[in-house]
């Protein structure tokens, strides 16, 4: 039983680390700013989430101490990740960052943003 839980914890931690790594890889690899925004906000949230889930499982099964605090960390990250992504995107639109997409909507919104 304990061995099984250990494997599960190891799997969760590895999954979390993989997603965190892929998120940062996306930050470096993707060509323009708004695409880069996708990597960290998604991959990193699940990355930390998986890792925290693993550690909750570990402390509950091995150390016999259930801590609800750890849920709060991931809950807080899940709430704040969209907010920070939104405000960074807003700042980027404000500065009129170049991007590859062909669109009229973006220009339009930029105009409305500056006239605001």
């Amino acid at each position: 039983m304990a061995v099984f839980i250990e494997y599960l914890v190891a799997a969760l931690i590895l999954i979390g680390a993989t997603f965190a790594l892929i998120g940062s890889l996306g930050l470096v690899k993707l060509p323009d700013f708004f695409q880069r925004l996708h990597g960290p906000t998604k991959a990193t949230t699940l990355g930390v989430g998986g890792m925290i889930l693993g550690s909750i499982l570990f402390f509950t099964a091995v150390e016999r101490t259930f801590q609800f605090q750890e849920f709060l960390v991931s809950l807080f990250l899940f709430i704040t990740a969209p907010a920070s992504a939104y405000i960074i995107a807003k700042a980027a639109l404000h500065l009129k960052i170049q991007h590859n997409a062909d669109d009229s909507t973006k220009k339009e919104s930029n105009d409305s943003n500056t006239s605001e």
């Binding site: 965190a20 700013f33 960290p40 990193t44 949230t45 990355g47 930390v48 960390v73 990250l77 700042a91």
Partner: peptide, 13 residues
Amino acid sequence: ILALDTLYINAIA
């Protein structure tokens, strides 16, 4: 800013 954001989340992990 995005890099800093990612940096602190990875540090939490």
